[in-house]
Each structure stands twice: as structure tokens, then as C-alpha cells.
Design a binder for these strands. Structure first.
Lengths: 142, 142
DNA sequence: CTGTATCCTTAGGGATACTG
DNA sequence: CAGTATCCCTAAGGATACAG
């Protein structure tokens, strides 16, 4: 069933959380975006062992939100392939920033070393640029 | 009580979700980072109306994770001020990317118009840059 | 005002079996 | 393999009262 969409507020952060505010939905995006996974079975066998009912409900949710789409595998009719829409692909920067943050602060995370270096080196410059924009009220919320 | 930390995997995205995988925690960060809120009462009166028990538990969680810290208001001893640590401030890029995404895809979001323009104009360039890095396996997960 | 505590309800989610 | 369905349980979370 389609989850009834009830916004808690008109805040853009809240909009993201209304869709992704749980421990699983972003992992499906990760699998599609960064692990090249495309099928139900591939999602189901990720390290975090998502339950099949949760997985199915998330795929429906993501399709309802226009973030993924389904198609039959042309090579094998019984197989269904999931792919990200543009709206889904555009989540990449969010994922990347999450990974950079973890790369810096999670000692146990398995992020490539060069990415850690990249993140640390660019962190200050990136933050300063954003803070500049903040000063111009570019991102300030009401 | 301190939530028992049980990682589901060593994935950096999963690390973020283990902390922020709910509908409320990021809103507290938003209030600190983008709304200039500092006190319990200010958090409690946000648009989304977080329950006080949830709020308190999230503040404990965030302090345990080293993302916020507490101090007494020097001007008023009974008042407690929360502030972000460096680890917390470094979440800003994540929040910003979330806002940019909402600015593009949520028709009802109340993001400043200039930010929408900014996001749309820079989206392709930004994605292309990340995709370049992806090709170099800079962000690829195992 | 800053929290705790308690009660209660619902939603999230694990395990597993089952269907096309 | 791609899902549904069911059972059951726990955690999340709303309401509210209360304490320092």
C-alpha cells in the first residue's frame, strides 16, 4: 500500500526525512548508485541483510516517489531491473557527503584511503565556501 | 541510557544511518546549524513538534556520538546551551546537499528561490565532477 | 525552563513460509 | 528469482504528568 504522504512541515530537510528517515531506504539507493546492483535479489543479499518485506515496501515507496523505475530485463523476461530516475541519481551528492563525513569520523569504516585524504584536504575549503554562502543567507531557513 | 551501538556493516553510509536513520535526529542538527537554535525549548518548538522524550533521547545520543556538547549559559545559569562539535559542523555539506535536492524536486518546499536556481545551475557540473571521481574508483564501495 | 518518567499506541522490522 | 503474506515482537514515538 502506498504510504500516506503527510508532510510534517515545508522544510526541505524534513522533506528528505519524510522519504528517507529510516535505516534502510538510503541503503537501496547506495546499492543502485555505488554498487551497481539492479535486482531484488542483489539488494536482498547486501551486508546489512534487509528483510524481504522491508525491501519490497521500500521499492514501492521509491517508485511512488519517482526515485526509481522498473523494467523487465530484455535478456531475461522473468527478471526485473530497477534503475534510478534523474531524481534518484541526483541523490548522489548527498551520499557522497555522507561518505566523506564517515571517512573522517568513523575509524572503522571501509572507505578507500584516498577518499579519506581527499575528504580531509577539501573539507575546510568546502565548508568555508558554504559558510560564505550562508553569510549571504543563501541557505538560511526561516 | 546509551543506545547500544551495533553496526550493521562497515559501510560508511550505514554508519551515518546507524546514527541518523530516523525522522528526527537530522532536524536537531538543522536547528543548530541553519536556524541558530541552541536550547532545549527552541528545539521543542520547531514546526515538526518533536516530543520532549524523543528530543531528550536524541540530545543524549548526539552527545554520546560527539556531535554536540552542552554548556551552561554564562548569562543565565539555569539555561543549557547546546552547540555542535567539529564533527557536528562537518555535517553541513550533507544538509546542504539535501536542501539542494529538495529545492529541485519538492514543489512545495520553502527554499529561497535563489538557492533553487543555484542548485539547478550547478547540479550537472557537480554531478559530472563526482562521476569523474567515480570513474577513478574514488568513491566506489566494495 | 530543562529535562524525566510513564503510559500507551503504532509503525518498523525480523523470521519464515509461500506463490507465480 | 521476484515478490506476498503472516506472525510476532520490539522500538519509535505521541501525550501527558511531573521533578529539579
Amino acid at each position: 500500500m502506498t504510504a500516506r504522504k503527510e508532510r510534517r512541515s515545508d522544510c526541505p530537510i524534513s522533506y528528505v526525512l519524510d522519504i528517507f528517515g529510516d535505516k534502510w531506504t538510503f541503503l537501496v539507493i547506495r546499492d543502485l548508485l555505488l554498487k551497481g546492483k539492479k535486482t531484488y535479489g542483489e539488494f536482498a543479499t547486501s551486508d546489512e541483510k534487509i528483510a524481504t518485506n522491508i525491501l519490497a515496501s521500500r521499492l514501492v515507496l521509491l517508485e511512488d516517489e519517482g526515485i526509481i523505475s522498473k523494467e523487465k530485463d530484455p535478456a531475461k523476461g522473468s527478471r526485473i531491473l530497477y534503475r534510478l530516475t534523474q531524481k534518484g541519481v541526483d541523490l548522489l551528492p548527498v551520499l557522497i557527503e555522507m561518505m566523506k563525513w564517515s571517512a573522517v569520523y568513523d575509524p572503522d569504516t571501509n572507505v578507500p584511503k584516498e577518499m579519506v585524504e581527499h575528504a580531509k584536504a577539501h573539507r575546510d575549503a568546502f565548508l568555508n565556501q558554504i559558510l560564505e554562502d550562508l553569510k549571504k543567507d543563501k541557505y538560511l531557513l526561516a
